[in-house]
Amino acid sequence: MSDNPKSFEHVFVAEEFAAREALCTIMNRLVAMGLAEDQMGGAEIVLAEAVNNIVEHAYAGMEPGEIRLNARFEGPHLLLQIEDWGRALPDGELPEGQPADLTGPMDDLPEGGFGWFMIRTLSRDISYARTEGCNRLCLTFDLIPPGS
């Protein structure tokens, strides 16, 4: 459909500082390819949470493996595919990502568990598949039409 598909791949090690550096590189490339400034924040939050999950859970307790990101602009969408070769998601399914419960006393306030809720809220569409030891998370974002 697209006359000029724009895409890139970025591979990095699933380690906290390498992930931070990779995120900065990826965001710069997305912006260079035309991601609008006011859409950057949402995409960066989702990417960061998805990558953190891989670093902290998929590769937990093992040698940090690779994370492979593919980004593609297609029509009015930005598609991000994130692959890793760590453990599968629990039950092989995407977590529900309920909003955190903030109703209790201060000492009971959650210090985590915000990630999947933000991923689900900020992306238009999300899918997960586990194939031959590979976790593949696909995320779709709506883009503001150019020139609008």
Partner: peptide, 16 residues
């Protein structure tokens, strides 16, 4: 410029 859920959790922890 940027905070993720871990950073948010750390600010909650700092408040506690």
């Amino acid at each position: 410029e940027f905070i993720d859920s871990s950073g948010l959790g750390a600010i909650v922890a700092a408040m506690k």
